[in-house]
Design a protein around this nucleic acid. Sequence first.
DNA 1: GTGATACATAAGCGTGTGCTTATGTATCGT
DNA 2: ACGATACATAAGCACACGCTTATGTATCAC
Lengths: 104, 104
Amino acid sequence: MIEADIFKALADPTRRKVFEKLAGGSLNASALRDGLEISQPAMSQHLAVLRAAGLVREQRQGRFVNYEVDPDGIVAIGAWLARYRAYWPQRMEALADLLKDMDQ
Amino acid sequence: MIEADIFKALADPTRRKVFEKLAGGSLNASALRDGLEISQPAMSQHLAVLRAAGLVREQRQGRFVNYEVDPDGIVAIGAWLARYRAYWPQRMEALADLLKDMDQ
DNA sequence: GTGATACATAAGCGTGTGCTTATGTATCGT
DNA sequence: ACGATACATAAGCACACGCTTATGTATCAC
């Protein structure tokens, strides 16, 4: 069950912050650290969890490892959420439009 | 942060099973137990977590307490997911249609 | 080659989580 | 009123989780 890893990964607040940072674009592990008061090994461990969950993927570039959001993870969450379509208050597309607007 | 409670709640496999059972319709705590090898207090605790996360809501009916999916929780997940819209492989509506088909 | 930088991994530790057993509270049947 | 049923709560315990420090590996600059 891949959902198990996904929800576990997202249960941690630091990992959610990291993931949201990556929503703005690709970043390396060091760049992901600043702003967050976290040690280098802790970040490395968090990234390993996110990667194992399929939420993030990496790309080596010399000494740096660039991380980016893995669309597969997003799809998996969407797939899970789709099972509860009967409880969506309206079409998810409409919700998405709503949320896009309140995104500042 | 309500997402914290939501993802934490869904991180547990038993709670996800309970939640998916409720996707089929309202059920009381005892009915939710069968199939799952879990004690009565454990189920009660899991339901308390799901309720606190806004994923489930209850309705007393005599001695029984009926639980059902709370659309607010679904909306909250959809709202969070909407932040990553840039990484959706296509429109979520299309994904939803796809998933509805492979839902046996 | 040598030192510095970027990141991963290992080991150990405090804390949170999910379970159990035991008990409490409320409603139903008689 | 009394026992049974449905569920919640309390306390205690084993284990998982996230952190730290220490160390390993790989790439860059010179």
